[in-house]
């Protein structure tokens, strides 16, 4: 093979390789671009039906009901607009807490109940020692009181 031909072949392979890689990536992204749907999205009919999808939001305060006998747990996912009750059986991540972000994978039934097969906790970008968090919480409560 001539040098010029070899060079052309290399460039062609590189371009094809890159394009194929880009296609795969775009395809992977298309399905995952939306990593999760909020309860509002679900009520707006944006989430897939009869297919598993991820539901994301906050665990509503005071909504966690844990079974004493097994690993069954019930809680409500909210985005401060709509709410969806979720049932799950399994081990929960350490950051699964009331008022914290959560992403669950599963199916929605006819009664708008979500049966999750996987629960992931989403954490926020804030990092601080507990004393500081407590102080901030107290300051916020104080500010709210003085407003009233």
């Amino acid at each position: 093979m001539k040098r010029r031909h070899k060079k052309f072949a290399i460039i062609l392979t590189a371009v094809i390789g890159l394009s194929v890689a880009a296609l795969f990536i775009m395809d992977a992204f298309k399905d995952n671009m939306v990593f999760f749907y909020s309860p509002t999205d679900v009520f707006a009919g944006k989430s897939p039906t009869n297919k598993t999808f991820r539901l994301g939001g906050m665990v509503e305060k005071g909504s966690i009901k844990k079974s004493t006998k097994n690993l069954k747990v019930e809680f409500i996912v909210t985005d401060n607009n709509k709410k969806i009750p979720v049932t799950y059986e399994g081990i929960l991540p350490d950051l699964f807490r009331e008022g914290q972000g959560v992403i669950t994978q599963g199916k929605l039934n006819e009664n708008n109940m979500f049966t999750a097969s996987e629960v992931l906790a989403k954490h926020d970008e804030n990092y601080m020692p507990p004393e500081v968090a407590d102080a901030m919480k107290r300051a916020k409560e104080k500010a709210n009181k003085s407003k009233m």
Binding site: A21, A28, F35, D94, A121, K122, H123
Partner: peptide, 26 residues
Amino acid sequence: KPMWGAYWVWDARLTSELVLLFLYLG
């Protein structure tokens, strides 16, 4: 693993960082 409950998920941040590794290797 301990915080989210998963070693890996195919979300946009993790996927694009993995693409970066492939770019270096490429």
